[in-house]
Design a protein around this nucleic acid. Structure first.
Lengths: 354, 354
DNA sequence: TCGTCTTAGTAAATCGATTAAGTAACAACT
DNA sequence: AGTTGTTACTTAATCGATTTACTAAGACGA
């Protein structure tokens, strides 16, 4: 009589249902425990002889055993997932940061949930709550000053979060200095400014930095040459309007320092609509160096933020905290440095006044 | 003797550990089953009197009971999560699609994992595998023709996926028609073309559509006036080089139809570098209507893809399939319509030849 | 020869919610 | 009076991996 084959046989091919630990253990005539020890290289596996280990590894490979992620997550209450919240996805800023985040996470085997709040109150409540419900291990908040859950480590990018584990911040003092130095070198002293919206976390720090840098250089900031972006759409239109507002009050300036590249593009449009040429009559200085900045006409002179690096740094920092499990007592501040990118939208102050 | 307080007391405040079903059940002197039935409004709850239901709901509110998402996911092997794979995040195209995706998912309580493969072979393997491991319920592939897992429903956006549940496609025939009609109306007959890279799923369909539209209109496509984008970075540089390639072979054309807005921007730079004015000497027609298109100088005339809508549609379609649990036998094709956006980069054919 | 160590494992509990399969008490009907 | 039905629940199994607490067999030393 020929030896009877076992009634239940494991399917070697990519079968319908993936093999689980129990089935694999049965197949090997071992207990799930032993397999778990060996496959996870746990300290308890020291007593298991190499031969058995090899058998287990071989079987795992053969049947393409992949541990059930859900079961593991559930058991350990760890999801290997972060939450990332950004204001808006389409303006290029967040996308750059996210690229950096993704790169760092991939290496660590983490994924992230992405949420864009578009400055809507309810989303600012709902998304963090969803993050908590889904047991993300930490949150990266990009340019977002929300009330975030206390019991989760948070790393902010461009946004001061006093309760968070860390803040990735641009050196705004340095940014303001190199920006003003550039304009001053070109001979500009009457400079108009477009401030950011109040909801943007950079607005205040940057404005303070500009003030003190201007002060140090003997540049007077005149009230009528300052306006602020109004509205929450990511469109040059806002910069266009802000510039018109300034032009209505005074045309006694030869340079504009915009809050970001998008508004700089709007500013240029407004100046040209008013019959002024950029950079011949007025120089325009942007901020961020988003994707579009280099390809605008005139190409934007701008202050580059290392957005990709900031994303990467945020993710690495957060993973570090998450790994240790101890949220830092006081938030660390990581400063990153801006860089002046000179292109075609700035030029020496015109010889004679308009 | 005063009544003894129970030894274990539930914490009403946002305590350290959230309340679980068992604790809540103990508190109410009921079994977890009963609570589960009532809180999920399951059919078995019909026999539970309203009074008990009210007690349960009240307690759940009072102790801010939130079901453990991980436990639920594990039990049901459903994660309420999708995977989205895109080529690149920073070029504006995917970001628009994602905004649409997000909007649809939020309403349904779904999140998504985002992965950008940047055309790297290994990431095209690794990310889908990670999606499967994490038990996403479906995948949205944006402009990506990867070998995707068979046992998951897939919806492609701009990419034909024969195995997938659905494809969201632009009506490229219509796009080619309105594009050529626009150029022909302006008097152009000698038209140069910049084709997309082979890896882009739109390249072939669009090119075929252009061919037949040109044929129908008696426009001859001359080989020396066709070049192709080379390289996988999302930069106008590629369009710049493609245009230079054409210019090296012939300058006998009055219009260029570019593969996308980014390459159109590069094309304009190349034409201007060659001493040609856009649109006075050569008209340039873009594609997509990405964010930067409107703010370029000259503002791009372009064929708009309803990217946001495409994302939304993809997500809705996928959720529908996921909900029913039955992957469609043959992929549905959802066609969306392009729209001509006339701006400043196209103009009537110049009166005399150069 | 007894007791202790080491080796090579196994059994059972656990994470938290869901669900199939009961059960006890009472009502209603034949 | 006995059967069937309804109401209001409870018990126990399940999802799959991990982990704590055991056990059995043999080696070794005193």
């Amino acid at each position: 009589m020929p030896s009877k084959k076992p009634e239940i046989e494991l399917v070697t091919q990519a079968g319908r249902t993936p093999v689980n630990l129990k089935q694999l253990a049965t197949h090997l005539n071992l207990s799930p425990t032993t397999l778990s020890w060996v496959l996870n290289d746990s300290p308890s596996a020291t007593s298991i002889p190499q031969q058995t280990k090899d058998r287990i590894h071989a079987a795992a490979r053969e049947f393409n055993y992949r541990p059930n992620f859900l079961a593991r997550s559930f058991r350990a209450q760890k999801t290997h997932t972060l939450g990332v919240i950004v204001p808006e996805l389409s303006d290029g800023y967040s996308a750059m940061v996210l690229s950096g985040v993704e790169e760092a996470l991939l290496e660590a085997g983490y994924f992230y949930f992405l949420a864009s709040h578009r400055h809507r109150e309810n989303l600012l409540d709902v998304y963090p709550q969803m993050f908590v419900d889904r047991r993300v291990e930490g949150i990266i908040a990009v340019d977002t000053n929300a009330e975030l859950p206390i019991d989760l480590p948070v790393v902010s990018v461009s946004g001061r979060n006093p309760r968070g584990a860390a803040n990735i911040l641009l050196n705004h003092d340095h940014a303001a200095s190199i920006a003003l130095d550039h304009l001053i070198e070109l001979g500009h002293t009457e400079i108009a400014f477009i401030k950011g919206q109040d909801f943007s976390s950079d607005t205040e720090v940057r404005w303070n930095a500009i003030w003190s840098a201007a002060d140090q250089r003997g540049i007077r900031i005149r009230n009528e040459l300052v306006s602020q972006l109004k509205g929450d759409i990511p469109s040059p239109e806002l910069g266009f309007m802000a510039t018109q507002e300034i032009l209505a009050k005074s045309s006694d300036f030869t340079a504009i320092f915009a809050f970001n590249d998008i508004s700089a593009i709007g500013a240029i449009k407004a100046l040209e609509a008013a019959g002024l040429s950029v950079p011949d009559d007025v120089s325009v200085l942007g901020f961020d160096d988003v994707y579009a900045a280099a390809f605008h006409k005139p190409a934007l002179t701008t202050i580059r933020q290392p957005l990709f690096e900031m994303g990467r740094l945020a993710a690495e920092t957060l993973l570090n905290v998450v790994g240790r499990g101890i949220p830092a007592a006081e938030p660390k501040i990581h400063m990153v440095e801006p860089k002046l990118i000179v292109r075609d939208s700035t030029a020496p102050k015109p010889a004679q006044p308009r």
